[in-house]
Amino acid sequence: MKIIVCMKQVPAAATASIDPLTKTIVRTGRNAVTNPFDLYALQTALDIKEGVGGTLTAITMGIPAAQKVLRDAISRGADDGAILSDRAFAGADTLATSYAISLGIEKLGGADLVVCGKMAVDGDTAQIGPELAQHLGISHVSDVTEILEMAEDHLVVRRVWDDIDQELYLPLPALITVAKGVNLPKLPTIPGMLRGRVAEIPTFTAEDLGADIARCGLKGSPTQVVRTFTPPVRGEAQEIEGNETQQAAKLAQIIREVLHGED
């Protein structure tokens, strides 16, 4: 099986401290780490690779220094890594990012399984995984809490959301995003660390990927952040029944209600 795991470098919140004089955050230079959720994704990919065999490549998009997360992935057991890095990718929202990563995955020859973390802790959107699946034209399951079965051509996964507990049969190729707690990520070994350090990491630019520049970076990003806030936790979930058309209609109605308070 050909597995690709998506990883991101994020700032480490814990290492930031406040300068007593300027009251600003002191960046110690040791403040970039692998997105914690991606370590669960990597471990999921490693477990599946161990279970059914195959290859595991880590991919990231970011500044050249972000290749550190790929070395980290290799030190933990990934076979290799590739970084997508180009000024043209700068300022990308989730749509432009997932577009670029989808091209990266195609450049690597595609994958039977793509694994992402549930979300990146710096943006908290949880959108990359589903959008990426959309770009690749494959099905996906987000927020997987357990891998129940693995085989060359399918996975059976579980996800627990509020009071919904689902068991899903997922034919491959497909993409999953995994929740914290899906496994216990293992630490690198010394030989892994030494491999990660010297590994050749190819860099792909927008041109290498044959990307449409209008769909990359800031230019390709329709998202406008107006305000960020933590939504109140309402702790309620409803299941929508019926066929696809009925479900879509019901969903549209709920959205209208939330937006406009319409009945």
């Binding site: 290492t15 780490v33 293992k186 630490l187 070994t189 010394i190 030494l194």
Partner: peptide, 28 residues
């Protein structure tokens, strides 16, 4: 990394297996 290489060498010399190691470099 030089220290890791030395520890790996000593592990083997002591009859151990360097794959049986955990290396922690990040806060988590």
């Amino acid at each position: 990394y030089e220290l890791l290489e030395s520890l790996s060498k000593y592990c083997t010399q002591a009859g151990g297996n360097p794959e049986m190691t955990w290396v922690a470099t990040s806060d988590s």
